[in-house]
Design a protein around this nucleic acid. Structure first.
Length: 577
RNA sequence: CGGGGCGUAGCUCAGUCUGGUAGAGCGCACGGUUCGGGACCGUGAGGCCGGAGGUUCAAGUCCUCUCGCCCCGACCA
């Protein structure tokens, strides 16, 4: 392709509305442009990278035994009503009506449709398993889209679904998908880590996320350097947390009230009372779908809302407002406690119940209770792990301290079980002639997000440094001094040769000044650069260099095709095939 | 939805506090000089100052309402 014939428009400055580096660079390099919040054009250059990403995904999906299909973006509400998600899904689901007033949605995911497809055709265990995938545009009306392709509302996703006669068979496909995902990210040259994950509102039993490691990642990951355990903080377990230090105050038969004016934070209260923050019972009032709950955690720890949400099995969960807290506890925010608290369920983290003596809010303004004994002075309805893991906590499998990393969730695989197949009666007859719901898995991968993550991980202050497999063009041929006929002749000739040799090459044939061309070349980040200019050609040479670094080499024009081939082979040799 | 910020030329921004007839740099067009790391000189085109109301002799600037965009939180590929 010739630069003059395609559509590449780079920006000199960072766009005002871009914050993270991948977003800035994708805009500046002319890969994407914005249409509305979270909605982007994929421009020719950007689309080439996305297309290459898609092809890698296709190859690995086929290897994993999945067949490609495409389902509609617009889906009738009836399927969603069948699965129960029409009511469950919040405003994130874009709902629309056709001219006959029939209800539809723009698909945020395709469990319902795929389940319908499979239930129509598959009737016997002999026809299982089935695995299907598509690469298709999704729409999720995210509360807050951000960071360009990192979290768009409209985005390209690969979603695969598998159907099985039993859990063991699902496990085989799940492992095959896990492996396919690893290969996809490895082939792109990305640093990633699979982690245990929460299933969110997709549902199911087991789930892993694939995280591309990047400081700008939106997700926190707890990882164990010694045994390799890794989990999203939302999901992360910990080994046993060290107990609170010995209680430094006198022990009584009942809690006693202490005035603590204006002291709302754990630190303030602990210091004032002369106890450790770990001696405090932090009491948080949450509002879920239909009720309020009081959640207790040790003062030095944090509540994990995802764990709590899963325990409560609710779709919405938020901290109660100040007014509600006063109404429920009878005291002001910051002075809540479990002693004498009635009318709400009390849920306690095990670390709270381990306390021998504790201090907590008295449900009265400016007052705390000390000498509180869990089990004696209050009894929670349930004791369950609702703690957020943090760096330094012991690993749940080997007890070594864990570290925290940040990552971009580029893939997420789930064991769905029979959640959808039961509701939608997607069943098969087993060898005994008995009807069973199929066991399902689903496997998502953000295509554009992975490309954005690749940039996040591969750039310098001049621009993108594409991993070869995702580069919009593997090779750029830059023609300098286009006013000199001998240069034009040589560059045109070389371009023809490179094309005929089958290389993925872009020919920068613009009559721009050298500085402009060099800067664009660095910004876009083509892996292999060939520069043809009067200076080198005077000696019969053309320059070759790599975006990733290293020296420029002078290559006789007649050897260039062979040199490019060798260079590309060397780069490819570094990547898994 | 809660909190914060921003909408002025194609892009990045000044001008808004203190009201007085619209600015810069880049880009674009034309002419000239340049030509291996975003050149220089000259000339020029380009604006309903996001939109609607209001206050005022006068509004980009003050007030009210709206729409859009960005950032922090809850959601997620």
């Amino acid at each position: 392709m010739r630069w003059s014939k395609t559509f590449i428009h780079t920006l000199r400055q960072d766009p005002a509305d871009a914050e993270v580096v991948s977003h800035k660079l994708m805009m500046r390099a002319g890969l994407i442009s914005k249409v509305a919040a979270g909605i982007y054009n994929s421009l020719p250059l950007g689309w080439r990278s996305i297309d290459k990403m898609s092809d890698i995904i296709r190859e690995e999906m086929e290897t994993a035994g999945a067949a490609e299909l495409v389902m509609p973006a617009i889906q009738p509400a009836e399927f969603w009503e069948e699965s129960g998600r029409w009511a469950q899904y919040g405003p994130e689901l874009l709902r629309l009506k056709d001219r006959h007033d029939r209800e539809f949605c723009f698909g945020p995911t395709h469990e319902e449709i795929i389940t319908d497809i499979v239930r129509r055709s598959i009737k016997s265990y002999k026809q299982l398993p089935v695995a299907l995938y598509q690469i298709q545009t999704k729409f999720r009306d995210e509360i807050r889209p951000r960071f360009g392709l990192m979290r768009g509302r409209e985005f390209l996703m690969k979603d695969a679904y598998s159907f099985h006669a039993d859990a063991e068979d699902l496990d085989r496909t799940y492992r095959a998908m896990e492996k396919a995902y690893c290969r996809i990210f490895e082939r792109c040259g990305l640093g990633y880590t699979p982690v245990e994950a929460d299933t969110g509102n997709i549902g199911g039993s087991e789930s892993h996320e694939f995280m591309v490691l990047a400081d700008t990642g939106e997700d926190a990951i707890m990882a164990c350097p010694s045994c390799g355990y890794g989990a999203n903080v939302e999901k992360a377990q910990t080994g046993s947390i060290s107990p609170a230090p010995p209680w430094p105050l006198a022990e009584g038969d009942a809690p006693s009230e202490v005035r603590t004016p204006e002291m709302r934070s754990v630190e303030e209260v602990a210091e004032f009372l002369g106890v450790d923050p770990a001696h405090l019972i932090k009491t948080m009032i949450f509002e879920s779908d239909e009720e309020f709950v009081a959640v207790l955690i040790r003062g030095d720890l944090e509540i994990n809302e995802v764990k709590l949400k899963n325990h409560l099995d609710c779709t919405h969960l938020q901290l109660a407002s100040e007014a509600k807290i006063e109404q429920i506890t009878g005291g002001a925010q910051g002075f809540s406690g479990p002693v004498g608290l009635e009318g709400v369920r009390i849920i306690a983290d095990p670390t709270v119940m381990d306390l021998k003596q504790a201090a907590t809010g008295a449900n009265t303004l400016d007052t705390h209770l000390v000498g509180v004994v869990p089990g004696r002075d209050f009894k929670p309805e349930t004791v369950v792990d609702v703690r957020t893991a943090s760096a330094g906590d012991p690993c749940p499998s080997c007890s070594e301290p864990m570290i925290e990393k940040r990552g971009i969730e580029v893939g997420h695989i789930f064991k769905l079980g029979s959640k959808y197949s039961e509701k939608m009666r997607c069943t098969f007859l087993d060898a005994e002639g008995k009807e069973n719901p199929m066991i399902m898995g689903c496997y998502g991968l953000g295509v554009g997000r992975t490309v954005a993550a690749a940039i996040e991980q591969n750039h310098d202050d001049k621009g993108i440094i594409w991993p070869l497999p995702l580069a919009p063009y593997e090779v750029v041929l830059v023609m300098l001094n286009s006013d000199k006929p001998e240069v034009v002749e040589a560059a045109e000739g070389l371009y023809t040769q490179l094309k005929e040799a089958g290389f993925d090459v872009l020919f920068d044939d613009r009559p721009e000044r050298p500085g402009v061309k060099f800067n664009d070349m660095d910004l876009i980040g083509f892996p292999v650069r060939i520069v043809a200019g009067a200076r080198g050609l005077a000696e019969g040479n053309i320059e070759l260099s790599l975006r990733s670094g290293g020296e420029k080499t002078l290559v006789p024009i007649s050897d260039m095709v062979e040199t490019v081939r060798k260079t590309l082979d060397e780069i490819r040799a570094q990547l898994p095939q």
